[in-house]
Computed example of a mutant assay.
Amino acid sequence: MKNKKVIRKKNESGKFTTINLSVLNDTRLSTTARLLLISILSDSDEFTLSQELYKKRLGIGQSAYLNAISNLEEFGYLRKTGLENDVSIPKNKKADSNKTIYFYTISEYGNLGKEAPKIETQETKANNQPAIKVIPETIEQPTIQEPVVSYELAEYLQKTANVYLSNDDLSSKLVSEIETTASIKNVKKLIDTELIRVYNETFDSIRHLIKPNSEKSVKEFKQWLKKEIFENFNIHFKNQTPRSKWAHISLIKNKKKATVDYETQMSDYYENPRD
């Protein structure tokens, strides 16, 4: 019996994108750099590359943005070149101003490499061309057709990377699935199977510590464990974290107060009489 119901959005024109699988599998890129690259590639090639727009779109600060740009430059996905000081760009830069404007080249192949910065001149710039623009790279590209995945699947694979990156068997199954159907439904089924296995294994590791009449503690522990595994995709617990959590819930948070017999109560009363 199925234990979930998924409500999906329709893939309406202009509201979804496809991303080459090689971008998701490039572990040299940071998570922020991958999301930035995916966001840039999801826009039109004529779309102006705005630092403030992408920072707002990804919910990141200046430092995180610059680190992502540097990461993309390092591994050949992005190259930027400065414009000459005497170049005037409407709404961006006046001629001979100190403001630096860059022209960006983006390659989904990651084949730009690091080259010495070049200065764009008036002769190399077409009239009225945007100062910042994503353009296709005119380098001979490989003829091998690599699988592409939807933006929704790309986001899901990013969130669950912690589950499959260190699991060779699961990674192999995911690659096979993506190369054949690229179905997010099937991918989620594979991930869920692994998460359920980890949940059962983790709960079994503390089962011998459970004492009678611990229903409340067991319920709270299961709620915590489900959130960690199925919502946060945290399956690599550090040194005995589940055991420590169980000890806190059962021995500290829900510790039963010791009962005091009648004789002890009366003894306390006579030693410390109330007014």
Rank of each mutant, 00 (worst) to 15 (best):
173 K>F: 12
218 V>M: 06
160 T>A: 11
156 Y>P: 04
176 S>W: 04
197 R>W: 06
176 S>I: 05
165 L>K: 15
193 T>L: 05
207 R>E: 15
170 L>I: 08
186 N>H: 09
174 L>F: 08
215 E>G: 12
223 Q>N: 15
180 T>H: 10
155 E>H: 14
187 V>A: 00
149 V>A: 06
217 S>C: 09
203 F>Y: 14
199 Y>W: 12
190 L>A: 00
182 A>F: 07
180 T>V: 07
184 I>T: 03
223 Q>E: 15
173 K>Y: 15
189 K>E: 13
175 V>L: 14
193 T>C: 05
154 A>T: 01
150 S>G: 14
187 V>L: 00
203 F>M: 09
152 E>Y: 11
216 K>S: 13
223 Q>L: 13
203 F>S: 03
180 T>M: 07
154 A>L: 07
164 Y>R: 06
193 T>K: 15
165 L>A: 13
183 S>T: 04
150 S>E: 11
192 D>S: 10
209 L>Y: 10
200 N>I: 04
223 Q>T: 13
191 I>W: 00
174 L>T: 06
179 E>W: 06
200 N>F: 11
201 E>A: 09
192 D>H: 09
200 N>Q: 15
202 T>S: 14
178 I>V: 14
177 E>L: 08
199 Y>I: 02
200 N>K: 15
167 N>I: 05
170 L>P: 06
182 A>I: 04
147 P>N: 05
200 N>T: 12
159 K>F: 12
161 A>C: 14
147 P>G: 10
196 I>R: 06
216 K>E: 14
178 I>E: 00
190 L>F: 01
165 L>W: 15
220 E>F: 08
159 K>R: 12
208 H>R: 13
149 V>E: 03
221 F>C: 00
212 P>A: 08
215 E>P: 01
146 E>K: 08
178 I>R: 02
209 L>I: 08
157 L>G: 11
182 A>H: 06
182 A>N: 06
190 L>D: 00
185 K>S: 08
197 R>I: 04
147 P>S: 12
194 E>D: 05
199 Y>A: 09
155 E>V: 13
162 N>K: 10
170 L>D: 15
146 E>W: 02
152 E>W: 05
211 K>Q: 11
221 F>G: 02
185 K>H: 11
170 L>Q: 12
156 Y>A: 10
218 V>W: 04
216 K>T: 09
